[in-house]
C-alpha cells in the first residue's frame, strides 16, 4: 500500500466558505462566525483510496477580491485546487478564471474541482444552474453544490479531486 502526499489549494473570493469547507472535511464541524483568513492555514487529512493512502495537504488561503489574487509562493507544488464560490453572491462566480490562470502558471496540469458553496441558503441563491454549467464546461471539470454547514457534497467533491490526483 503506497502513501502518497498531495497538496491542494482552496481558492476563491473572501468569505465564500473555504475555511469552513476544510473545517467540515477535516474536523466535521461548522462555525457560523466569520474569521477572515490571512496568509494560509495548512491542514492534513489522510484518505484511503483503493490501494493507496493519500495524505491531502489542504492549503486554505486568504480569499482574494476583485483586485488581488493569491501570492504565487502559496501555489508552488499544488497538484490540484478547489475553486470555491458563494451561491448567495453573484460576484464571487467570475473570479474563478483569475484563480485558474494563476494556478496554471505554477502548475500547468493542476486538477480543479469547482465548489458552489452555501447551497443550504436556498432563499438567497444568486447564481443559476446554467451559470454554473457554463463555468464547469469552461473549466473542463466538475461543479459540486456544497454546504459546509450541512456537509452536503463536501466529502464527495474533495474525494473526487483526490482520486483524480492519484489516478
Amino acid at each position: 500500500m503506497a502513501v502518497i502526499q498531495k497538496k491542494i489549494c482552496l481558492l476563491g473570493e473572501f468569505a465564500v466558505g473555504k475555511t469552513s469547507l476544510v473545517r467540515r472535511f477535516v474536523e466535521n464541524r461548522f462555525d457560523d462566525k466569520y474569521l477572515s483568513t490571512i496568509g494560509v492555514k495548512i491542514s492534513r487529512k489522510s484518505l484511503s483510496l483503493d490501494d493507496n493512502t493519500v495524505n491531502l495537504l489542504m492549503w486554505d488561503l486568504a480569499g482574494g477580491d476583485n483586485y488581488q489574487g493569491v501570492q504565487s509562493g502559496y501555489l508552488r507544488g499544488a497538484a490540484g485546487a478547489l475553486i470555491v464560490c458563494d451561491l448567495t453572491r453573484a460576484e464571487t462566480l467570475s473570479a474563478y478564471e483569475r484563480y485558474l490562470s494563476q494556478l496554471r502558471e505554477v502548475n500547468k496540469n493542476a486538477y480543479v474541482v469547482f465548489l458552489a458553496n452555501k447551497v443550504d441558503l436556498v432563499d438567497r441563491r444568486a447564481i443559476s444552474d446554467k451559470e454554473l454549467k457554463d463555468v464547469a464546461s469552461s473549466l473542463g471539470g466538475q461543479v459540486y453544490l456544497t454546504s459546509a454547514k450541512s456537509g452536503i457534497n463536501v466529502e464527495l467533491a474533495i474525494e473526487t479531486l483526490a482520486k483524480k490526483l492519484v489516478g
Partner: peptide, 8 residues
C-alpha cells in the same frame, strides 16, 4: 529564496 508569509 522561497518565502511563505503568514502561515497560521
Amino acid at each position: 529564496f522561497f518565502r511563505l508569509e503568514d502561515v497560521n
